[in-house]
């Protein structure tokens, strides 16, 4: 049974700027093979998971027991390298399933990435699975 938590306050907040060199490395890391590179990697939002990692600590989830179940992004404005953003991470819901190696805990985390004008740029919905 899924428990909807309806958080009103973020579990974690953070400020982040991805340097251009890191964004360039991102393209290299995915073995980008197209002739042109856009100004930023399409999934650069994944570099903004600091709030999720902080939330996992608060949930007492050991990182090596965590698997990535699902990911969804709503892209409202493009994220750019060398630009400072604010992130707010919420734990939206939780449910459990029994598996071969014990109980697995599923958490849906939402991170809103905002620019310096307070405009929401990306909504990130991450389902993590904490293995027993």
């Amino acid at each position: 049974m899924m428990t909807q938590l309806h958080p009103t306050e973020p579990t974690a907040t953070f400020t982040l700027k991805v340097p251009a060199a890191q964004a360039s490395l991102f393209f290299d890391a995915v073995a980008w093979q197209l002739p042109a590179r856009p100004p930023a990697p399409p999934t650069l939002a994944t570099a903004f998971r600091e709030g999720e990692f902080l939330a996992m600590q608060k949930l007492n989830a050991s990182i090596e027991r965590v698997l990535h179940g699902e990911q969804r992004y709503r892209f409202l404005k493009d994220l750019m390298p060398d630009t400072t953003y604010q992130g707010e991470t919420y734990v939206n819901s939780h449910y459990e399933k029994s598996g071969k190696s014990g109980t697995m805990h599923f958490y849906v985390l939402q991170t809103n990435i905002k620019n310096s004008d307070g405009e929401k740029c990306v909504e990130c919905f991450t389902t993590i699975i904490v293995r027993g």
Partner: peptide
């Protein structure tokens, strides 16, 4: 998922325009 992003960039380049609004 980054590969999905690259795939979509390739698709939009072939169409000449457009952007990704949502990706899951």
């Amino acid at each position: 998922m980054a590969f999905f992003g690259e795939f979509l960039h390739q698709a939009l380049a072939a169409q000449g325009s457009g952007r990704v609004e949502e990706l899951s």
